[in-house]
Design a protein around this nucleic acid. Structure first.
Length: 277
DNA sequence: ACGAGAACCTGTTTGC
DNA sequence: TGCAAACAGGTTCTCG
């Protein structure tokens, strides 16, 4: 489901609503998601106070008192939904882990496909965590620019689209925003990644940043599964230029060819063949 | 070592 | 209408 803008929106919602609360009860409805749930998670979390919530790439980091971090990834279909004490939520299918807080609020981790994961680690070992260690540039970070992006792309023979999905190059883009960013940068998704440098890399870095920022401002894109932590829908899907728009008119040109759909590395890519080179 | 494809799951949409 | 195939926002493993 979620790419960087959706995760960022969820993180902001969680920060606002969870900071300062204390886990009262943790219910594990199964033993594993994509990976086994951490052993002793229930005992370790109950009674712990949440200090803040942050994000790295598409990972949600819930920082607890005592320098421990609950790390969560939503995979393709994961959702996190909070219900306050006065708005009871019945247990839904695929509610795999349910957290109850000291004030009666409930947070459900729901994930039909179970591509998501949850881990619990000491804060000190976070930088070396297996899942975070190899992540690439944070596209909203200060050090993200065309030159640094080009450095990561140098020598790569795969398509630029495939490279943008490689989290070791840049961390947080997914299938929707990769197509959208390439469109706004006028770069063909089929172009070899290693040939994106100089002004072209500058344009791509700028398009990535702008696309993600606009999407965050809209609360992310709601398709099948995604909702904000509050349960509200995002609305950036109404602003997509190319994603899911095969055959439709490109928003910036009047060519009759329309938006094309191709398959790269088994994922759909959408682009305008006239403007993207 | 790299890139492409399969695999992991369930649910929904599409096409015959 | 019914059933099967295709497809879905991600990541990781295997194979050539």
């Amino acid at each position: 489901m979620p790419e960087l803008p959706e995760v960022e929106t969820i993180v902001r919602g969680l920060e606002q609503r969870l900071a300062g609360r204390r886990f009262r009860q943790v219910t594990l409805n199964r033993a594993d998601l994509r990976t086994p749930l951490p052993t002793g998670l229930k005992a370790k979390l109950e009674g712990k106070r949440i200090e803040r919530v942050s994000r790295r790439a598409k990972y949600i980091l819930i920082h607890c008192a005592g320098d421990a971090v609950l790390l969560a990834h939503l995979g393709m279909s994961g959702r996190i939904v909070i219900s306050e004490a006065n708005e009871k939520r019945l247990r839904q299918k695929h509610d795999h882990v349910v957290f109850t807080f000291d004030d009666g609020a409930v947070l459900a981790f729901n994930d039909a496909r179970r591509f998501g994961m949850i881990d619990y680690v000491a804060a000190a070992q976070l930088p070396n965590h297996k899942l975070l260690r190899h992540l690439g540039l944070e596209p909203l970070g200060h050090e993200f620019n065309g030159a640094n992006l080009a450095k990561r792309l140098a020598g790569k023979n795969c398509s630029i689209k495939a490279a943008l999905l490689d989290q070791r190059v840049i961390a947080g883009l997914g299938n929707i925003y990769a197509s959208e960013a390439l469109y706004w940068a006028n770069i063909s998704p089929r172009r070899r990644a290693g040939t994106v440098l100089g002004a072209r890399a500058d344009a791509l870095a700028a398009a990535i940043r702008k696309t993600l920022e606009r999407a965050i401002a809209a609360g992310g894109s709601s398709l099948r599964d995604y909702v904000q932590a509050s349960g509200e829908l995002g609305y950036f899907q109404h602003h997509w230029a190319v994603y899911g728009k095969e055959g439709e008119k490109c928003p910036r040109c009047d060519c009759h060819r329309g938006i094309k759909r191709i398959v790269q590395n088994a994922r759909s890519t959408f682009y305008c063949a006239k403007y993207q080179r």
